[in-house]
Write a protein that binds this DNA or RNA. Structure first.
Lengths: 226, 226
DNA sequence: GTCTATAGCAGGATAGAC
DNA sequence: GTCTATCCTGCTATAGAC
């Protein structure tokens, strides 16, 4: 049976491999459309303020299809939140290998500044801040989900940074006592203020590249001992 | 008319001045009881999960009395949140005057460590973390309230710390370029990690005094340049 | 001013036709 | 598997007796 004419909910249909035997195209497309709609709505409005009916109509399906695909609202929410943390994993991997080609202590300063800019730019994005707010909002109701998010997201990135610092220490490029603690110091010197403000100033202005550069340079300067 | 026997909701009645003509004692007592119950329930469960009926029964009054006293649920919530920030004001004032008797640079290190311990102890308390979580949870629904909380709470304390640092610089006890930025650096070096973890690990273990002391000492050490 | 009772409504979840 | 129609619970807010 062909798609009804006039429907423009087929954006993600191409993800489905051609000619797959199980999981017909239409089903995968609808599941993906529901996930996209739910992600958008949860991030913008929160868990409670988003109704399953709203998710269904935004995705262009009926409410019952949402329940068929995801069971109930809570499972839909969990799948959305943990799905988004996959991007944090990719970011942590990118950080970990970002100084492989550094071979002299002289280049450390510039390399750290570049890393700081990337790190800060990622964290201050409205999407990341909205996700943090969303998870914190439901931390009382779903404590295990909040803990899982923290492990896969912020803690994973911090650990990658700690590994990177330990590697730099081993290669004689950086001198710190405890690389793990140094990573934490560096991260919050860099991110603490914007993360704090970002939680309370909803839809506030995103820092300009110039502001990000200045903040990153300042954090590196303080971290390396003024 | 005397208080009914067996009622133990009169804890805050003494706040009412004796013999006040307007605002009879009973009314003030009930209003305070409602405020206490609402504070407790909002902090523990959040805004949406707390019903006005629950507030009424916890306070020992009827639902209608809650509406008579506070108008509606939203106004009750706003009054609770902004009321709690009064304690932040007191804390900021205490910080500001905490180094008035310091007169030699040699004592700076110890004085900063003491300040750091008090600051950290206050911020990691379950009440403060719960309040942060509560305000962030409703930041999308009540953006102006979240901004007001931030101004009266965290930002006010940061500003007081900046003033203190500026004063220390003026008296030749501390050398930093920009006292405001230095205050921010110091604060997030000290608080960043526990604040971040505290948002996601609900009902997690409160740091012991020994852990707080170690964190405070470390932050001061890094801040003063290792 | 306070209580009991209730209106009015929204949202999660399901039943049954196709 | 999907859609339409519906049930039922729980919540905010109000009306009316005292």
């Amino acid at each position: 049976m062909p798609e009804p004419a006039g429907a423009d909910d087929g954006l993600l249909v191409r993800i489905t491999p051609r000619g797959a035997d199980r999981a017909p195209r239409a089903a995968e497309g609808k599941r993906a459309a529901i996930a996209r709609a739910a992600t958008e709505l949860f991030l913008a409005q929160g868990y409670q303020a988003t109704s399953t009916e709203q998710v269904a109509s935004t995705a262009g399906v009926s409410k019952q299809t949402v329940y068929n695909q995801f069971g109930d609202k809570e499972r839909l929410f969990r799948e959305i939140v943990l799905g988004v943390t996959a991007t944090a994993e990719a970011f942590a991997d990118a950080l970990a290998g970002s100084m492989d080609d550094l071979d002299s202590p002289a280049g450390l300063d510039a390399a750290l500044r570049a890393l700081a800019r990337r790190y800060l730019t990622t964290v201050v994005s409205p999407q990341v801040l909205a996700l943090r707010r969303l998870v914190i909002s439901e931390a009382t109701r779903f404590p295990d989900l909040a803990a899982a998010y923290y492990e896969r997201g912020p803690a994973r990135v911090l650990a990658a940074l700690g590994d990177l610092f330990a590697d730099l220490v081993g290669r004689g490029l950086l001198r710190v006592g405890d690389p793990t603690r140094a990573a934490s110091d560096f991260a919050f010197l860099l991110l603490g203020r914007v993360l704090d403000e970002g939680m309370f100033r909803v839809a506030g202005p995103v820092p300009t590249p110039a502001e990000i550069e200045a903040s990153a340079d300042h954090a590196v300067e303080v971290f390396l001992g003024r």
